[in-house]
Design a protein around this nucleic acid. Structure first.
Lengths: 144, 144
DNA sequence: TTGAAACTGTTACAATATAACATTACATTC
DNA sequence: GAATGTAATGTTATATTGTAACAGTTTCAA
C-alpha cells in the first residue's frame, strides 16, 4: 500500500473519530510508512530533522505513542523499531516475520490466537488485552 | 520450581554438554530464578553488586547472553526483562502471559506455532529460527 | 607446557526512552 | 467574542538499556 493511501485512510479515520491528526503525527507516519524496513525512534527523529528545525526525542515519542495507541503503526519489540500497520482494521494482536538478514518485516494477518493457546489462557483466568508474535528467521529472498 | 533445582539442572546440563557454568553465570541465573517477576539487566546488576565488588554492565550482559543462548532464561522483549525458563527442554519458541497489573509473567508451554500460521510462513518460503509470543493483560489475581 | 580459545576486567560510550514543567492551540460554552 | 478547560507542543534535562574495544586471565586439550 502506498504511503499516500495510508495517510489518506488515517486522515479519514481520524476525521470520523474526532481524533486530531496533527502535522507531527502525519510526518512521523509518513516517514514510517515510506520505509521498507522498521525504523527506530531515532531514525524517525533524524528524518523529521530534514523537515523541521532540530526536533527532540520527546516530539517523536509523542507522535509514536499516538500512532501506536490507534494502531496506525506497530512496534517490533525485538528490534525496538516501528512499522506501519496495513491491516486496515483494528486488532488486538499482531504477528510478524522478521528477516534477520535483510531486516525486512512482514506482517502476517491472521489476527487470532490459536485455539489451544486461547484455551490455556482462558483456563488460567487471564484477561488478555493485546498480544504480539515475532517470528525471526530468513526470508525467501535472503536464502542461499 | 525452586531456585536450587534450576541451578542443579543447569549444572548437570552444562556438565553433560561441556559448557562452562561459571560463577558469574550461576550468580546471574540464581538472581533471575529467585525473582517472582522478570528482572531488568540493571536489576540483576544491582543484585550482583550485593555479592561482588562493583560489577559492570558488561559483566551482566555477558552472563545474560550466555543464559539466553542456552535458553536457561528468556527475554521478555516488551519489558526488556528476563525470566528463568522452566521448560526443561530446548524449544525454538516461547509464549508468555504478562500481567500489566502486578508485573508477573507466566510461561505457557505450548511450544509450537499454530498450524495456519506455520502454513502461512512456509508458503512465503520464510525459514524460521525462533519465535516469541507475548500476551499482555490482567492475571487472575489482579482482577476485580 | 604451551598455545588457542574461552572467559573476565575495565573504560568509555551509544542507543533508547522518559520526567517535569512551561507554553500554545483548539473547541466549547457562556 | 471572551473565558475556560483540555489536548498538543516546546524545552531542558536525565534515566534506562545495551555495546565497543582492548587488555589480561583462566582453562583445556594437543
Amino acid at each position: 500500500m502506498s504511503t499516500n493511501k495510508v495517510i489518506k485512510e488515517v486522515e479519514v479515520y481520524c476525521r470520523e473519530h474526532g481524533i486530531r491528526f496533527t502535522d507531527q503525527r502525519r510526518m512521523a507516519l509518513e516517514i514510517i510508512a515510506s520505509s521498507k524496513k522498521p525504523l527506530g525512534a531515532y531514525d524517525v527523529l533524524a528524518e523529521m530533522g530534514k523537515e523541521v528545525e532540530n526536533p527532540k526525542p520527546t516530539t517523536v515519542y509523542r507522535a509514536l505513542d499516538f500512532l501506536l495507541e490507534h494502531a496506525f503503526i506497530h512496534k517490533i519489540e525485538s528490534l525496538n523499531a516501528f512499522v506501519v500497520c496495513h491491516a486496515g482494521h483494528s486488532h488486538e494482536g499482531s504477528q510478524f516475520m522478521v528477516c534477520d538478514d535483510c531486516g525486512k518485516v512482514e506482517e502476517v494477518h491472521l489476527c487470532h490466537l490459536p485455539k489451544d493457546l486461547k484455551k490455556k489462557i482462558d483456563d488460567t483466568g487471564f484477561q488478555l488485552t493485546r498480544w504480539n508474535t515475532e517470528i525471526h528467521g530468513t526470508c525467501n529472498r535472503c536464502q542461499p
